[in-house]
Design a protein around this nucleic acid. Sequence first.
DNA 1: GTCTATATGGCGATAGAC
DNA 2: GTCTATCGCCATATAGAC
Lengths: 201, 201
Amino acid sequence: MKKDISTEEKILEAARQVFYRKGMDGARMQEIADEAGINKALLHYYFRSKEKLFEAVFQEVIKGFFRSIEKALYAELPLTEKAEYVVDRYITMIESNPFVPQFIISEINRNPQMLRNVMMSEKFTPQSLVDVFGNPDVENHLFKFDPRQMVISLLGMVIFPYAARNLIQMIYFDGDEAEYSKFLSERKEFVKTMIIKMLTA
Amino acid sequence: MKKDISTEEKILEAARQVFYRKGMDGARMQEIADEAGINKALLHYYFRSKEKLFEAVFQEVIKGFFRSIEKALYAELPLTEKAEYVVDRYITMIESNPFVPQFIISEINRNPQMLRNVMMSEKFTPQSLVDVFGNPDVENHLFKFDPRQMVISLLGMVIFPYAARNLIQMIYFDGDEAEYSKFLSERKEFVKTMIIKMLTA
DNA sequence: GTCTATATGGCGATAGAC
DNA sequence: GTCTATCGCCATATAGAC
């Protein structure tokens, strides 16, 4: 049934856009319907309720987010190169979904149980990112720190500029969108350089 | 009029708590009234509308956030020590308001204009944090990078663990709150060390 | 200033025709 | 599967007594 899939996809795509902008509580079913070019009642036909629709979108986003960097984590590379590779993949991925970080951070608190469910349903192995920095087969000076400190730092450096985009853009770039985009495009190189510095004596 | 101030303060405090947990759209005036131990109608007596009440809370939070680190920025210290001092102050401040980062990130998108207004009404000089790293009177190897790259990195490393607390806690700490708190308490030292590494050859 | 009671509008959800 | 019409509730906001 081509028609079915097409409509369901249209709804999910529209819902994603609206939920990105407004969040679960701020979003309106009418707005999603308009965005999808269909009637409001159809949303309830495909997904029973707003809550269910949101869960479907949230699951989809979370899954995509984690899967997209999994490959980089298992690459057979020495520590520093692997770290560079991870940063590269991560930023590239966010660049193509720039609203995801803020969306996730905003919605996490609303229903932590939902996040747990998504994590369970898929077999996420986030430990592997820790392994990248916890691997002791390379000379480095991080032993006195929990390797997760490095992981969180990497994630913070990569994600924060997107999660807090509007704030940063206004404060440090006078609201100039183009200038901030340029800044972000130069950031990949900077973060790579800094991660390597952090990993070496 | 002691009574007036007391009630208004009670409302603001209650509103802050509820808005932290639920956000602007998720919050209910009834819940704020209950939290403040007063009647719902009183909220409208003191603040005309939910929107106005939220703006008052948001302004207050933003102002407090920026002011609290301003002192550290003007300290007369050499680059590395100043950077350490800033990190220290920042984390200490967030530790006493751990829900603020996520709150700000979540609400920024809703109404960027409001943020602009707050920035205008106060005379924020965020440039000073850039000056910390842009100061060329110290030997360092950052010249080929925009000093704002350092600023955003520092902020990301400091803020991200709080903004994405629930997510990180679940993924990397198996949901163990105590363990994550311990992790955070060790983080101040880690970030300081890393910032210094990033600033030196 | 603070309360109770009520108006008003909007939103999620459903009924039912096609 | 898709639409129009409508229900029923709930949240913001106001009226008005005290």
